[in-house]
Design a protein around this nucleic acid. Sequence first.
DNA 1: ATGGTCGCGGAGCGA
Length: 261
Amino acid sequence: MKIASFNINGVRARTHALDAWLEDAQPDVAVLQEIKTQDEGFPTAFYEDKGWHVAVHGQKGFNGVAMLSRLPIEDLSLGLPGDDTDEQARLIEATVVGKTAVHVCGIYLPNGNPAPGPKYDYKLAWMERLRLHAAAMLAYEVPTVLLGDFNVIPEPRDAAKPENWVDDALFLPQTRAAFRRIVNQGWTDAIRIRDPHATRGPFTFWDYQRLSWERDNGIRIDHLLLSAHAADLMVDAGIDRAVRGGEKPSDHVPVWVELDA
DNA sequence: ATGGTCGCGGAGCGA
């Protein structure tokens, strides 16, 4: 079972890039971030006609997440628990059953800039709620993949120019510590373990500005965290880097993991 | 140091 994540930065602006990638990569499950539309603006019927099961958690203008699955979507849940006043659409999770059941939780973690400030406070609060939810998911002991745009640069080697990010909400010590608290519950970073001693990259995001792609001035902020049961089933993982060089690309590229499930 | 690029929605914000 191939499970992927792609921050598409607007589903309407990304029709070509998304379809081309789906055709090429053939994921069984794909979680999408920043669809930037309400539910009714998502091309649900279009993808259902192509054989996808579709779940959408939309929001007008900003944020918004979705799930496309070749397998039926079961036990769908929308939104991060822990704050009934939080109306931002940033989490979609469900169970899909192939050879075995896999729980898939797709997230769009808040950016948090500028820091300090209310947006950074919201980011840290969201990460604390995610920590609690992640622990609850591990307790189910179903193979689980927690993936998406985390808006966290975990280590200096995850940025081409870490010195440019020292005051940024994606790289501040508090952000990285909050990320570590989650990972240290027992999650496996599927991309990092493929090359544990890499000193630079790989990257998943290149800003539209300052010729970042042409200069390979990237960062790694899209992550796939595997529960122990999921890590035992991992066959391969990767980053579809070439997507960034395509026509009308997102500023993120897809990340994926293949499980024997 | 500054400004640079996108998407959404139809100005300015978010990233």
